[in-house]
Nucleic acid binder design. Structure first.
Lengths: 358, 358
DNA sequence: TCTCGGACTGGAATGCTTTCCAGTCACGGC
DNA sequence: GCCGTGACTGGAAAGCATTCCAGTCCGAGA
């Protein structure tokens, strides 16, 4: 195991440098030395001027700035980072950026981080925990100052190990890692599910199906737990189908559920990819919403409200999740204590939910 | 101007280093020197082993690898980059990653780039060309080896200037920059529009409205041009409303178009945000699709085919666009010649398109 | 036996910047 | 007139890895 990790380090000789000859081309852009020479001052003085150090005379400042302007000098953040130990970059590890929910989260986070002076290194794992591990390691090699993690599998030992080894602050995106007091930006899935399920129960539904995502990540677990809890306090029964966050699973699970003897009279789709599959299955089965079955979706998609009928949705504010996650990370980067924050979800009822057929 | 550029370089003194004291903490992870010491060999030998240099004896290799494994050493890509001049990272500049189309493009690109050994630095400009400029400059400071650019405004002089100064390879994402022979991954918007417009004309439509995005980027221009061309060769008239790629513009433009004396009998929505606005406006105006107006959308959104009726769409394969763009960039990074590639669009007709009301 | 070449190895320079430390200079106070 | 002080400034080390160059050592061939 240790040896196989080493394997990763080995490179093809000379495969890393794309240009025919290696090393920096000498015709490169100006560096600080050029500025110093042109201004006729020492390297250290240029650095002081540029870093806003107080011990700099007006004359010096002007000479340096003139030289900088004349040469079009721009500092090399690489060298700065090597020297200072701060790369001013954070790694963002997500399963699938093409999921609009995640894209909005990442957008919110990226903007906030940039405001804070940090750049974002994005990696997609395609929901493969091995890739998560690889990316975490890669980001570590790139010396990111922190990470935002939306891991694909909270229970994967490799992931836990890789994350545990980290020596930079992290913030989990709606994830929970056993035994690690990590910061996290969490959604209160239970509240939304509870509101939706209670509504269904009140309307007279007695059997509800939850087409859930992977139980190995927090949102699915929270949703299932919350739903079961509501069902225990009412005379509603629930059936949960948990698997991947894919349209395919949504489709299969819905077919399964709805073909059963005592099919549910209401469905909750636990994710926007899943929703697509649920809709396809219902269409294929010739079942209408809400005539044959009531339908609730988790997480908005842009067009959900233009479907006929518009789909009732358990909402959260993805941009806010990203911003909060970024904020939590920035706090840690400033040396402030680790903390987590839970954000609300709300149930927006529409005509896709009505009492079951008599 | 030159002076204001300098302004950007000035930092607050000590604002850059987040940790109380600055510089790397001495308790940091192992570096090559530790490995060399533990293995009892020279630094250069460790480097040779790790970089797969041929001049290494088996004994040496084992000693070094053992030490590496024992210490859990991981190379510092920062230092490697500084030395070799290659950061193995590329900058990705997009307007809005939360747009599913762009998210899928970015996903495709990121995966291909990672396969090629490159990491992606993502920046969102929120369609502000000044941010585009800032990001290009930032990425340059970070010494990315190349960039993928989906600029917000092709005609902004600041952007043209910043991009022109670049000394790394770039690939434009469906953009065209005057006077620069840049590589680009382009979509053949004309083909899709032509197919759609021809279909509308054949069905008997005589007035078609295009709710277009900003004319300052290629897709909008291509679409408008293609539509006008079809209209010249038929007796169909077209009206084009061009502005930002937003739901708000889609809404306003649709209200405008449909309230006019001789309202169009068919609409083309030039973007998925725009489509949302178009749908909202139509609903508000009490107009039905396709009864009152036929509707064609550009670019898929996940649920478009579940709307009632499903919306006819001019499609492209966003993942492929990203992959191709990444490939074009990788080619340049390998020193191969600059080239562009155009990818197809297709028109997928649905019931949202039918002959105009008699 | 001597020399030459090949196979490795170590040392040192290099990339670019930041920052510590020590030094210079001028000026005010005594 | 001298010295302490404060305000700057320059030099050099450090951060981590790569690579060139100059060895060392050994075995083979003459």
């Amino acid at each position: 195991m240790a040896r196989s990790r080493v394997r990763v380090l080995l490179r093809d000789h000379a495969s890393m440098t794309p240009s025919p000859s290696s090393l920096r081309t000498p015709t490169s852009r100006p560096v600080m030395k050029q500025v110093a020479d042109r201004a006729g001052v020492a390297l250290s003085s240029v650095s002081r001027v540029l870093s806003g150090h107080p011990d700099v005379s007006a004359v010096m400042r002007n000479r340096v700035l003139d030289a900088v302007a004349a040469l079009g000098y721009e500092p090399d953040r690489l060298a700065q980072s090597l020297r200072t130990g701060a790369t001013m970059s954070v790694g963002v590890v997500v399963g699938d950026i093409s999921n609009p929910l995640m894209a909005q989260i990442v957008l919110g986070a990226e903007m906030r981080l940039r405001d804070g002076g940090y750049s974002s290194l994005l990696t997609n794992s395609g929901s493969d925990p091995r890739l998560d591990v690889e990316h975490v390691r890669l980001l570590q090699q790139r010396r990111v100052d922190g990470m935002l993690l939306s891991l694909s599998d909270e229970e994967d030992p490799g992931v836990a190990d890789a994350v545990g080894r980290l020596d930079v602050p992290i913030v989990l995106l709606d994830r929970q890692l056993a035994g690690q007091g990590s910061a996290a930006a969490l959604s209160d899935h239970a509240a939304g599910i509870q509101a939706a399920a209670q509504e269904l129960a009140d309307l007279g539904h007695r059997r509800v199906g939850l087409v859930n995502g992977s139980p190995r990540v927090r949102p699915s677990r929270e949703r299932a737990t919350a739903l079961r809890k509501v069902c225990r306090s009412t005379d509603m029964q629930c059936r949960v189908r948990a698997a991947a966050y894919t349209a395919e699973h949504g489709y299969q699970a819905t077919i399964d559920l709805m073909r059963a003897e005592d099919a549910p009279t209401a469905l909750i789709a636990g994710g926007n990819q899943i929703l697509v599959g649920v809709l396809r299955a219902l269409r294929e089965l010739g079942l209408t919403v809400p005539g044959d079955v009531s339908l609730v979706a988790c997480d908005d998609v842009p067009l959900a409200s233009y479907l006929d009928p518009p789909i009732a949705t358990i909402r959260r504010e993805p941009g806010q999740i990203g911003r909060v996650a970024a904020e939590l990370l920035l706090e840690q980067l400033r040396g402030e204590p680790v903390r987590s924050q839970t954000l609300p979800t709300t149930f927006a009822k529409t005509e896709s939910v009505r009492p079951p057929r008599a």
